[in-house]
Structures are given as C-alpha cells and as structure tokens.
Design a binder for these strands. Sequence first.
DNA 1: TTGAAAGCGCTAACAT
DNA 2: ATGTTAGCGCTTTCAA
Lengths: 348, 348
Amino acid sequence: MARSTIGIKDVAVAAGVSATTVSHVLNDVSYARISPETRRKVKAAARQLGYGPNRVAQALRNRRTGVLGLVSEDVATTPHAGRIIQGADDAARARGYTLMLINTAASASPASREGDVDAVLERQVDGILYATMYHRVLETPANLGKVPAVLVDAVTADGSFPSVVPDEYGGARAAVAALLEAGHSRIGFINNVEDVPSTSERLRGFRETLTAAGLDGGQAPVEASSSDAAGGYEAASRILRRTDAPSGLFCYNDQMAMGAYRAAAELGLAIPADLSVVGFDDQELVAGSLFPGLTTVALPHYAMGAWAADRLIDILEGDPDAGGEEPGTTVLECPLVVRASVAAPRNP
Amino acid sequence: MARSTIGIKDVAVAAGVSATTVSHVLNDVSYARISPETRRKVKAAARQLGYGPNRVAQALRNRRTGVLGLVSEDVATTPHAGRIIQGADDAARARGYTLMLINTAASASPASREGDVDAVLERQVDGILYATMYHRVLETPANLGKVPAVLVDAVTADGSFPSVVPDEYGGARAAVAALLEAGHSRIGFINNVEDVPSTSERLRGFRETLTAAGLDGGQAPVEASSSDAAGGYEAASRILRRTDAPSGLFCYNDQMAMGAYRAAAELGLAIPADLSVVGFDDQELVAGSLFPGLTTVALPHYAMGAWAADRLIDILEGDPDAGGEEPGTTVLECPLVVRASVAAPRNP
DNA sequence: TTGAAAGCGCTAACAT
DNA sequence: ATGTTAGCGCTTTCAA
C-alpha cells in the first residue's frame, strides 16, 4: 500500500483533523502535543485508507531524498559487483535509505564518468558510493565532490575521499600461514603481472610471512603471468619444474589456481597429497567447484559495500562518533576460507 | 553540474526573463512562442551557471519520476544478476530513466516481498522490473500490480504480467545440434534433478533434436544429479560407464560440465578428442577457464534485462505498437558460444 | 512573445 | 492540543 492516490489530506479528512496533525503523528514529531485519542484516530484512518507517504514530496520539502547513488563499474562482468551491491543495499535499507544504481564502464572517458555522476546528482541523491571492480587507484570525476561520497574498492591518489579496500597484505599472510601451519616449508607464489595494488601487496605479504617464519622470503620461488586460468597454468608449470619446486603454492587468484590444478595434474601431482594450493578471491563458482575444493582467501565485497553505505550515512547524518568527514582509507579483513586443497606435505 | 543550489529562478534572473520562459525553452515546450534571441540568452545563462534540473521537483509536479524499480533476487549470489542489471540500466538510461534497486531474498516471505515492493512504490517509481535469478514460476507480491510491472527470468502461473524468459528449449537444441554437426551420433545428457522449467525444457530439446535427426531421442542416455560440479562428476561418471556411453555429452550447466571434465579425466578420456562436451549458462569464469575452453549455451540475461526495461517503458509511455498492455511471455534466444570442447568423434 | 499565479504532497514556523 | 500558512523547485494554465 503506497502508490495509491491517497494523501495526507485524505487521512486528515477521514480522521477529522488537519493535515498538520496527520503529519505530526505519522512522523512522531517530538514537539507535537497531540492527544492519544487523536493519535489513535489518525493512525487508524491512515491504515484503513492504506496511506503511504509520497517520498518524492517529502524529499522536495526536506531537501533530503534518502537515496544513495551507487555508481559502479562493470556490474555485469564480475560477481564482485553483486556482493558490493547487496552489502550496500542491506546497510542502506537498515537505515531507511534506498539505492539508485548507475552502471559505468571501467573504460569510460572522464566526460562520460561525469555524466554518470550527474545522472544521480540530478536525482538529488544525498550521497554517492563509487565502486570499482578491482582494487585500484582511481581518478574521480570532478563532480563527485558535489555531495558526500565514499569509494568502494578504490582509493584516490590524494586520498580525498573516504574509502574502503581489502586487506590484500593480510589476506596473503593468512594464505601463507595456512600453508605454514600445515607443515610446508617450501612455499611458492604465482603472481599476476599487472601493476595493481593487489599484485604488490600480496607479494609483500607472501615474502614477509615466510621471513617472519624464519624462512628466506626473499628467495622463495615466485613466477608471474596473466591472472587467468591460462596464466595460472603457465606460471604453475614453470614453478613446479624448478629445482626449488614448492610443496605449497599460493596463487594470486582462484582463476590462476584453477590453472595450477591442471598443471599439477599434468605433472602427476595430486592435490593436496603432493601439492597444497591456496587461492584468492573466493569465487564460489570456481573455488567450490574445483576438486578438491580450493582453500582460498575471500575478498570482502559484501562487507565493503555495507561499510561504505554505513560510513556515507554517518557522514550524511553528521554522526559525531563517525570521526567527522575526515577521509582516510579503511582496510577490511580478507578471511581464509578453508576447503580441501591444503594438507601436510609428503616430505616437509 | 547538477546538485548545486542553482534553480530555474537563478537562470531566469541571469537571463532577464521569467521562470516560465526558462522552463519553456529548456524543455522545448512545443506551444511556446519565444524569440530565438531569448532562447539563446536563456540557454547561455543556464550553461554558464551550470544549471541542472531538480528531477525531484519535476517528478512531484509531473507525477512521473522517470525511475524504474528493479526488485531483484539474490543479487550477490549469482553473476546473472549483474547482467540483468546492466541490460536494464543500459536500456533505461537510453530512454532517460534511472534504476532504483532493491535486493530481495529468494527465500523471503510473502510479507517481506511486499515490503520490498512497497519500498520502491513509496519512492513513486513509474514501473517495476521484478527479476529472479533462475527461470521459474513465481508468486508475485500482491502489491506488484500497483504500477506497471514486467517479470524478468520468471513467469506467473496465470501469466498476469508481461515477462521475458530464456529459450531453454532452443538452447538445448543448439547444443545438441553442435554435437550432431561435429559428427556425433552417440549423444548423452546429464541433467539437473530439480523440478524447474529449465530441467524439463532442456531435456525436451535434447530428445527432440535427436529424434529430428533420425536418432532415437527417447532412448538416448540421460543421467541426472545435483546441478553443481559434484553432481556433474557423479552423473558423468555414470553415463560414461554405460554400455551405450556417449561420445558427445550435453550438460545441464557449466558447473556440471566442470564435473564431467573431471570424470572424463579419471576415465582417461581426452576432451575433445575422446569426448565432446557442451555446457549451458556461459559462466565466463568457468567456461572460459576450463581446459579446453567449454563450448556452451549462453543465457541471455543482459538481453532479458534490456528487453524488460524497454517493454516496461513502452507500457509507461503508452507506445501503441508495443502491443498494448497485454501480458504474455517473451522468449529470448540462448545462443551457442563456441570454444574448444567439441570435435569430431573418434568412431562416429 | 512573455509572465503571474496556482499547485504537485508534504513539513515546519507560527499562531491559537 | 491543534490549525493556518507558506514554500521546497518545477510546470502549466491563463492572461496580457
């Protein structure tokens, strides 16, 4: 019951009071002194007529729409977008906000990005969530600053917006720790070749975790290739043929791990008996479908979406303990998801 | 430039005309007689001030928001949602509409579904797109009829809403045809066990295509299991051990095909030399990452989203050649995506 | 060729 | 304890 043509006036007439009174009771206005009896009548009339507020009219009057613009890259191409959206939607809805969605292309020109932002700005969104599909440094459209904004899975070079990104470094540490705990000491890493934060941070986590465990992180075997299954196959084939071939393999992502599974099979290596493998991303469709199930590190897309929406609303509502508007980047944990691809090594 | 506090009045003052005139020229009102000179001045002033219309105010006045509510199930759990969203967003944007998103759970109670619909109804959306994540028969919330609505990837038992679904039957035909054309005559199917339209329609397409090719579709080998990789492995293991084991295998979806790859490997069968495989869904992450790449049938989620948005807008704008409001279900093609898992059989 | 005025549904001063 | 009035930014009669 909402869209009908029933307005506050109809309720007022039905309850025999003025529109003001209806507004007061329906919104629980604090300073309003209205008799319990009248309150009852108004509520009864509203329910009986199936009244629902017209949020557009409220928005015009209050100069707040209760809508958050979510401009997101390439919603169609990765499953990550869905999780960000769901996290943001859940958090927003819990606080009475709704999302307005605009899809933008990662390859879009600056002008078209501004157009995307303008589209939600015209709709008077209270704030904007700007999400990218993989963790990176972003040039934000010039008009993004017109309302409060929070970046999801991205940062700007100058840190001018609050943002939330995954703890790539910590995730890598968790992955390597899992291998270490299983008893591996010969641990390798197949990395992505692209120059993005995750590439360098996961490598750093890999090396530092080994070093902290008393191994030689600096010398541990690392091979890099494209971050897909073919690249994983290729890099894994190389690393597994080295004289210092590892018994435990950390892979840049689940796709590469999938390629590593094939390389291992070709070399007659059983997983996890002969080779333990840990991935990154936790793409359910891949990690859960491989055999044996891939132990991997989850990217916290849902949590990032939820965090960002909450943070944005804190800013909008001027919540003091939200730490004011100070930007800064928040880093969210990447938890290990244990399946079946890690076991003790044959010969530690 | 949009959100600023610049309104039509500011433009009017700057151009030395009235607000009415500004509205007339900016909206190209047909009946307005305004001198070219004034038009120029108004436009110049608007641009110069960076004026952008306040769509909320326009909406209140015009009683049309230009917003479409997209109520979608389980946005986070499948990559399909992203494609529907992107298709709908592209189509909507091309016609000046914006999407407002509400995520709903496939498991949600009728009451909470009504709440989801109400949330967008309160925001005065002009129409609603109601999307499910797999093709099925749906019980729509009672309040869905309050504004025009179109179903995506679902139908109602009574066909009361226009809807768009994938051509499961045609997709299955295309898959089997690919196997037939490669020269296979011993063709099997591993199917899902759930009772959903895709299960029965793909089976029907499988049998009828074989029969139409002069083979005995009724007797062709079929095994069923859960629609995941484990189920695919299990069903494929069974079918490949039958005395009438196929040389060409059609799989209910890509996940099951992934399981079939493993079953084939265990039996020493090379793909596609010893066994040709065709999947369904075209989950890029899976189909493109398997080795060899999986030839599969694509589910037209993008096209369904786009079609639905277009259809909804046709209805909203009363487009006559849209065939009026008559409901009916539109079926969209599922095209074959050729990769590398089909070849001629060793012994046809 | 242009402008004044009314009103979309709602809220908030400011009366009473 | 409740009602009157004005106005959010815009579009549209209607009048000039």
